[in-house]
C-alpha cells in the first residue's frame, strides 16, 4: 500500500492504495465519484477523461499513485452552485449528447482544447476530440457545442469554462505559467 494525497474537485483526500490502482477506480470505487465512467481498457475511448494538474488525462491510464500530490477535476466539479459552465450549457443546448456515457470525457477534453485554443475551427475541434469516442451522436452536435461554448467565452471571459471548476488554486497553462483563476 502506498500513501497518497490527492485533491479532487476541491476536496483533499488522504488514502492508502495499492500501487496498481487506476486513478479512475480510485475516483469511482474509493471516493464514490462515479460521474467519471470507464469505457475501454486501451485508453482509446476517452470516457474517463479528467483533468490532472490542469491538463486532460485518461484516468484509466494513470495510476492513483501517479496523482499523489496532484489536483484532479472531474465533470462533477465543474458546475458552481448549480450553475453550469458554458460547455455544459452548450452540450445541453446543442443536443451534443444522447446516452451521455461519453459526455464527461467529451466535456473535459473540450475544456482542455478551449484553454489552449479559445477560438478553434470546427476542424480543430474534431482533431482535438480524436481521443474521445461517441457512438450516439455522430459528433456533429458535439462539434457545434464546443464551437458555441467558444463563442460564448470570447473576449474578457475567455477561459471561463476552464476557470469555473478550478477552485481557487492556480493552474498551469500550456506555456507553463502559473495563473490564478
Amino acid at each position: 500500500m502506498t500513501h497518497i494525497s490527492v485533491t479532487v474537485d476541491g476536496t483533499v483526500y488522504e488514502d492508502e492504495v495499492e500501487p496498481r490502482l487506476l486513478l479512475v477506480h480510485y475516483l469511482r470505487d474509493r471516493l464514490g465519484l462515479t460521474g467519471t465512467p470507464v469505457g475501454c481498457d486501451t485508453s482509446n475511448c476517452g470516457a474517463c477523461t479528467v483533468e490532472l494538474d490542469g491538463m486532460s488525462v485518461k484516468s484509466c491510464t494513470v495510476l492513483a499513485v501517479q496523482a499523489d500530490g496532484g489536483e484532479v477535476t472531474t465533470v462533477q466539479g465543474l458546475a458552481r452552485d448549480g450553475a453550469w459552465t458554458p460547455l455544459q450549457r452548450a452540450f445541453h443546448e446543442r443536443h451534443a449528447l444522447q446516452c451521455g456515457y461519453c459526455t464527461p470525457g467529451m466535456i473535459m477534453a473540450a475544456r482542455d482544447l478551449l484553454r489552449e485554443n479559445p477560438h478553434p475551427t470546427s476542424g480543430e475541434v474534431r482533431q482535438a476530440l480524436e481521443g474521445n469516442l461517441c457512438r450516439c451522436t455522430g459528433y456533429q452536435n458535439i462539434v457545434r457545442a464546443v464551437l458555441a461554448a467558444a463563442e460564448e467565452t470570447t473576449g474578457e471571459t475567455a477561459g471561463q469554462d476552464s476557470a469555473a471548476g478550478d477552485g481557487a488554486s492556480g493552474r498551469r497553462t500550456a506555456s507553463g505559467q502559473e495563473v490564478t483563476a
Binding site: T36, Q76, L78, G100
Partner: peptide
C-alpha cells in the same frame, strides 16, 4: 441532460 452533463448518473 442535466444529470448526464454534471456526472450525476
Amino acid at each position: 441532460d442535466a444529470r448526464l452533463i454534471t456526472g450525476q448518473t
